[in-house]
């Protein structure tokens, strides 16, 4: 079971160019900033939008193939789509909504009963969607989708309509419910945290262009590209240039650094995570003299913004995050030496 997607579509000046193969039985994240084409990708897979060209196949079944003129209507794709707004029919009760997913008339009652029990909806069957909380609506929407026996699931930012204090519980529940699903599950989001918690592998979408599928851990430990690095939550980025001696020049930070491994070809940027930087006493390998610009006290940690020798704004500012007690002895200083450990330097392609 797998979902093969290889499509291109023009939307005005915007170009969508997405290719990946999502395996069955696990959740594949589609991570990207707002407006990068995530929802359009899902809509193309579901058949709501038509790609200009390309190929979509689910478990060997061709859903769309521009070269052969195949374009199955959404009704025949067997792809479940969980909309951001859940899209429950407002004029139907929860029971009627779930029943709307069941094609065979004879199975309707039994399927509704089974799914209502599985999704803890028995008490709510005769209520209308507007009478449900966000989490309940999501459960009802998911139950309705499963009633239609989909072979793949598409989840479009399923937590964006929820109050933040509810998200955590709903997320855990959703993960439990998705676990037994045998087909591929695509999970679209702009939140790296959700990807880290819910997805086994992830496809980064950067302004319409997809990057190769990678294990989620790889994205966070060693992002390969600038956009992946930014999406993975890395705060410190500099333009960079590889030097012949194997070291790299961090242009915005005004420093020459020694990475753990020789820089890869095509290197354009470097990244370093805010909690990997280490304050040191004085000069040394990979150490930069920095001026303290701002100190922000957070609940359990201290965030320090530092100006590097490269200047004092934009990319040349470094962000250091460390436990409060580690910053305490340094507070009040105007300059601090910062060391970037070689293994914490992330070489990036643009």
């Amino acid at each position: 079971m797998s979902l093969v997607v290889d499509i291109r579509k023009r939307l005005g000046p915007f170009r969508l160019d997405v290719a990946f193969e999502a395996p069955g039985g696990s959740v594949t994240g589609v991570l990207g900033a707002s407006g990068c084409g995530k929802s359009v990708t899902l809509q193309c897979i579901a058949g709501i939008q038509r790609p200009d060209e390309g190929y979509i196949a689910l478990d060997g079944r061709v859903l769309f193939d521009s070269s052969k003129g195949v374009n199955l209507p959404p009704q025949r794709r067997q792809v479940g789509y969980l909309f951001q707004s859940y899209a429950l029919f407002p004029n139907l009760t929860v029971e009627q909504n779930i029943a709307a997913g069941v094609k065979e008339r004879g199975e309707r009652r039994e399927t509704v009963r089974r799914l209502a029990a599985a999704f803890r909806l028995e008490e709510l069957l005769h209520k209308y969607p507007r009478q449900l909380s966000g989490g309940q609506q999501q459960r009802a929407a998911l139950a309705r989708i499963l009633a239609s026996k989909p072979q793949a699931l598409l989840l479009d930012e399923p937590f964006s309509a929820l109050d933040s204090y509810l998200k955590w519980q709903v997320e855990l529940e959703l993960a439990d419910r998705l676990a037994p699903f045998p087909g591929p599950v695509l999970f679209v989001t702009h939140s790296r945290d959700e990807v880290q918690r819910l997805c086994r592998q992830v496809c980064v979408l950067d302004s319409g262009k997809s990057q190769p599928l990678q294990p989620t851990r790889a994205l966070f430990e060693a992002p390969a590209t600038l956009s992946a690095c930014l999406l993975s939550g890395c705060k410190n980025i500099t333009r960079a240039r590889a030097l012949p001696d194997g070291r790299v020049e961090a242009l915005d930070w005004g420093a020459v650094l020694t990475p753990a491994a020789p820089p890869p070809a095509g290197l354009t940027h470097l990244g370093a995570r805010a909690h990997h930087l280490v304050p040191v006493e004085g000069p040394g390998e990979n150490a930069l003299p920095c001026r303290v610009v701002r100190v922000v006290e957070e609940l359990f940690s201290t965030v320090v913004m530092l100006a590097t020798p490269g200047g004092g704004e934009g990319f040349s500012l470094l962000r250091l995050e460390l436990p409060k007690e580690q910053w305490a002895p340094l507070s009040g200083r105007e300059t601090v030496w910062l060391r970037i450990p070689p293994e914490s330097i992330l070489p990036l392609r643009g």
Partner: peptide
């Protein structure tokens, strides 16, 4: 979106 939802659910 409601009509899209109906179509992905297999409804005519």
């Amino acid at each position: 979106t409601l009509s899209h939802a109906g179509r992905t659910l297999g409804r005519s």
